[in-house]
Design a protein around this nucleic acid. Sequence first.
DNA 1: TGGTCTCCGTACTATGGAGTATGGAGATGA
DNA 2: TCATCTCCATACTCCATAGTACGGAGACCA
Lengths: 193, 193
Amino acid sequence: MVTREDTKSRTTISRRDWIEAAYGELARSGERGVGINALAARLGVTKGSFYWHFKDRAALMRALLDRWAHERTDEMLARALGSTPDPLERLRRIQALGREVAPIDRAMRLWAQHSPEADEAVRLADRALLGHITGCLDELGFAPGDAHLRALLMLRAWVGGYLVPSPDADGDPPGGDPYDRTLGIFLARPADS
Amino acid sequence: MVTREDTKSRTTISRRDWIEAAYGELARSGERGVGINALAARLGVTKGSFYWHFKDRAALMRALLDRWAHERTDEMLARALGSTPDPLERLRRIQALGREVAPIDRAMRLWAQHSPEADEAVRLADRALLGHITGCLDELGFAPGDAHLRALLMLRAWVGGYLVPSPDADGDPPGGDPYDRTLGIFLARPADS
DNA sequence: TGGTCTCCGTACTATGGAGTATGGAGATGA
DNA sequence: TCATCTCCATACTCCATAGTACGGAGACCA
């Protein structure tokens, strides 16, 4: 099928190649979709290569955790933090970031449900993410405790979309998605204020 | 360990016994935790009993789907629907119901991520649940489209709690949980109104 | 008392994926 | 040219779990 990358050269596979292939498979098929044999076939090699670069499967999965954590913090720094002074615009950028990373994020969170190591990584990343969102809400004038709760609810509502998809359309509505309305709901103050 | 139910009699195991045991294990350990051998040991029998009552594992899992769907609609009817005319009180009861069914609900939703049949069942149940929540919001004066979106966000925020737990306390705060504040946020109108 | 039907124990096979042992091809340096 | 080192192919083993074959014990009926 995939006849050895088609570029004729590349007779050798690096450790990073394995990680990248596994990372892609993780985003597509989840944690249990990351199989040594399948990845080997995909890379045009056999398990012999894998066990040369890694002690065992757990070592690969740990590498994936690292890969994800670094990518995550890099994206956070590059995107949301420090760019614009407008907190509402920062929130919108966080939302957009979320849509981009949805597949791998979903895979990570499902994996974390039965893996303490993955759970640890996700928890750490969420800590930072919640900090940023809470910061935005603080700047928007919400009380500290209120901002904290709203940030948590926003994140949960987003992540909950993995488990309960929109009922009124299988694919995303091609026109405009209701995320602005969503954000508006989470930013609505009680009537008095 | 569990020496044959301790009640001495009961030399025979019914199909329903298998389903109940599997249902409990599903709530505890998730779909892949439902193993024939483990259940057999738990029931004090062997696989011979299982394959007498069921064609294969898939048949048991289908029975679990049915079991869950019926329990779900029964609870919905008994609890939220038709009891009180106050929509806000109904919403609170739906929340309370959610806390009770959290383990099996969580297991079902995780299972649905890699099983079309489970996904179908969850989708159906969510359709009804969202209908109820939307009805409450309608009665509270929200516009139809707005009520629909808010109901979806409430459900997602709840379900999202499975994937992103509260960061500031491992266990639930024993005093009072912040669900009233949560509900208040989802019911807040934009400033004008 | 013999026959059959229900329910389950025992012992097997089958399968899929992780992990291992070992050798071999190719590059590289002395 | 020989030795060694890197990287990988081949061919296994191991293990957990689903599924099968078959027989046996007990109830119940004629």
